[in-house]
């Protein structure tokens, strides 16, 4: 299992692996929004939590189709399915690798972009915490969506249509936590709910995703 994690990380960091694309997308979004909305600091501060969370979500979505599609194309997925590692474990590890290369960097970079968007100071800590707690759910749900569409020729767009509705609770609790913190309110409840979604997703979705993969390999 560790070997699979190391391989996926190594592939992501090597040339053409796509590491940093999501981060770049996140940065561009944080630049585009003020250009579209106008430079008023109060307005930007008001919408900053939502923009940052939507941006993180879209940046995650961008790299989802790599989770299984590349392994499916070169035949690795067939071989992994016949390997001693249970397919559920393969799904969980690949989602973890996706999170390390996408979700975690987004969470760490978010405060810098929060400055650009004039987020109120009390929101910064909660922004990082909420992204660290919430992005694993985004990776796991995304892995499920990627597993559903892995055999399809142009699965990317369809996968967005399937995955985005599933992202809604995560987005609501994540953005609410930051909004509340930025207003000086208590953010513990949405953070706990966010952690709950992540825990539930990580516990259950590998089984659903592995089932979908087995169907698609058939």
């Amino acid at each position: 299992m560790i070997a699979l994690l190391i391989r996926d990380l190594r592939l992501a960091f090597r040339a053409g692996g796509g590491f940093g694309l999501g981060l770049g997308f996140f940065l561009i979004l944080a630049v585009l929004v003020p250009l579209g909305v106008g430079p008023d600091p109060a307005t930007l501060g008001l919408i900053a939590p939502g923009i940052l969370w939507v941006g993180a979500l879209l940046a995650c979505l961008l790299s989802l189709d790599r989770i299984f599609a590349l392994d499916h194309e070169d035949g690795s997925l067939d071989l992994l399915a016949t390997s001693p590692i249970p397919l559920e474990g393969v799904v969980a590890i690949k989602a973890l690798a996706h999170w390390i290369t996408t979700g975690l960097p987004l969470a760490l970079a978010a405060p810098v972009l929060a400055i650009l968007l004039n987020l109120a100071t009390p929101g910064f800590g909660v922004l990082i915490v909420s992204l660290v707690l919430g992005t694993p759910a985004l990776s796991m749900i995304g892995a499920f969506g990627a597993a559903l569409t892995v055999g399809l020729k142009r699965g990317g767009l369809l996968m967005s249509l399937l995955v985005l509705p599933l992202y809604m609770p995560t987005l609501v609790f994540g953005a609410q936590a930051v909004t509340r913190a930025a207003q000086g309110l208590d953010a513990v409840t949405p953070l706990l709910l966010l952690a709950g979604i992540t825990a539930g997703s990580v516990a259950l979705l590998p089984f659903a995703a592995a089932f979908a993969l087995r169907i698609n390999l058939r």
């Binding site: 560790i2 070997a3 391989r7 592939l11 692996g17 392994d71 035949g75 590692i85």
Partner: peptide, 23 residues
Amino acid sequence: AHADGLKSTLTVRENLAFWAAIH
């Protein structure tokens, strides 16, 4: 199968070592 399950950016040894570790 027909497809070898190789990763183009990994070296020959890395590719093989990965499958060895999996097994």
